[in-house]
């Protein structure tokens, strides 16, 4: 790695840690930094403080970081694979697919339709359903991209799939009872706070596995920048790479959507921020840069959401959208 990236990586790492700490210190209960530290280290502090810090704030901060990393890496993978700067798990309908899976689970369980049939349907059920939904949409988009060479068509296809699935979800909502609807609406608002215990472990493993798979692909991803033919001519088994990207994206985007709700345009925006700050398209630089930026952006969104007492999903969209607009305008200027 060259010298000039060290400054970025040092600064980004420090920023990530600072935001993580800031996220732990932010919340409706006014807890001082000293008490947060005592609660984390098992020192002498009130029981209520300990519960808030260890059972609410810490899992939430970890979830924000992991979710940010997952959707951002998913976005990077999609952008490289489809050679399209506007690709991302949300734009391509992958998040919608995961939402449908999760919606079937959440609405079904709450209204008692499948809870009797599937007693174990819970964490694993929602995650599995979201994976299946994400995999189905990603499978369709990838299969279509093999038939249709046009990237714009693929993008529109993904958006239409997403819109169609959202319509189906609306129908499901309309047909659901009040209680089920409420739990679903809260889920779509991006409930970072719902993730603890088993869910947090599952999310952590999914993100770590996805990140490891992405890192292992750094060379083929670089070669894919010049197209599939050139990648193959340089020794890449393109089919194998597509399969790994498929699994990694499904795992990361699906799990995050299942547990935290759809996270707007963060997945699309963060890889562009990473490119902007490093001035590079080499995945050996971009992957760690995207991990650091993705974690930081989502932590910042969570802090803002907590400070303004609004859903984190709204903050994530509002953060991502300006970057998306900037990418579109910039790509028009340099055709």
């Amino acid at each position: 790695m060259r010298q000039d990236y060290r400054i970025y990586f040092t600064a980004a790492s420090i920023l990530l840690v600072l935001l993580f700490v800031a996220d732990l210190l932010t919340g409706s209960a006014g807890i001082g930094p000293g008490d947060v530290w005592l609660a984390l280290t098992g020192g002498d502090t009130e029981e209520g403080t300990r519960i808030i810090v260890n059972n609410i704030r810490l899992p939430k901060a970890l979830t924000a970081m992991l979710a940010g990393i997952a959707v951002s890496l998913g976005g990077l993978l999609m952008q490289t694979l489809f050679r399209n700067p506007l690709a991302g798990p949300f734009v391509l309908g992958i998040s919608s697919g995961a939402s449908l899976g999760a919606a079937l689970c959440v609405l079904g369980i709450s209204s008692g339709i499948i809870s009797s049939a599937l007693p174990l349907a819970g964490t694993a059920g929602v995650a599995g359903a979201a994976w299946a939904g994400a995999a189905a949409v990603l499978g369709i988009v990838m299969a279509a991209s093999r038939k249709i060479g046009d990237n714009t068509v693929i993008l529109i296809l993904g958006m239409m799939l997403g819109a169609g699935i959202d319509a189906v979800i609306q129908i499901l909502q309309y047909l659901s009872d009040e209680q089920a609807l409420k739990s679903y609406i809260i889920w779509t608002m991006g409930a970072l706070g719902n993730v603890s215990g088993t869910r947090l472990w599952l999310l952590a493993w999914a993100v770590m596995a996805g990140t490891a798979a992405t890192a292992a692909l750094c060379k083929p991803l670089n070669l894919l920048l010049s197209g599939e033919d050139y990648a193959a001519s340089a020794g890449t088994d393109v089919r194998q790479v597509r399969n790994i990207v498929f699994i990694a994206t499904t795992l990361m985007a699906g799990t995050v959507t299942a547990f935290c709700g759809p996270l707007g345009f963060i997945g699309l925006a963060v890889p562009h921020l990473a490119r902007l700050f490093t001035g590079n398209s080499d995945h050996r630089v971009l992957i760690p840069a995207t991990v650091l930026a993705g974690g930081s952006v989502m932590l910042a969104c969570d802090i803002a959401a907590k400070a303004a007492a609004i859903p984190v999903n709204a903050v994530a969209s509002l953060t991502g959208i300006p970057v998306v607009i900037w990418v579109v305008i910039r790509s028009r200027r340099h055709p």
Binding site: S226, G227, Y230, S233, G235, N280, S281, D282, H334
Partner: peptide, 17 residues
């Protein structure tokens, strides 16, 4: 890839590379 190299008609325009 170790035996045959290839130049196609595809245009390679990677921003920043």
């Amino acid at each position: 890839a170790r035996t045959v190299s290839f130049v196609s008609t595809e245009r390679v325009r990677i921003p920043g590379l």
